[in-house]
Amino acid sequence: MFDQHYFVIKDDYANAGKVSTNIKTLLKQLGVDSNILRRIAVACYEAEINMIIHSYGGEIILTILDEGYVNLMFHDHGPGIEDIEKAMTPGYSTASKSAREFGFGAGMGLPNIKRMSDTFDLTTSTSGTRLKIGFKI
């Protein structure tokens, strides 16, 4: 097993996507199939952007399991998702104007992350949101 921790800062638009780029580069070096790698990269990028736009910041943990799985955990420090059902609805967005100016806030993030991943587990409270997604590689 291998794991790596990355930190994400609230409203840090200048560095948005850096963690996902690093994770994609690392997994490519490890020889992950390009179609699976693209799914991992897209889901990771969407979730990283969500943390920057919506949360107070947090941590991304990449875990590569010996059994051939890649897991990504996104753990932020709040304020939580008010209505998960709405957040999972394509087109629903609470993104700010600045997020939209950055090209995000179409309301496609969480549904797209779920579609890209093999396993998807989302829990939320006012103290933080945990999103765990997994990929068979």
Partner: peptide, 16 residues
Amino acid sequence: TGLCNSQSIRTAVMLD
């Protein structure tokens, strides 16, 4: 795109 910032580049990278 008319989105002229690093995110159009990052998006292209993620999507190959």
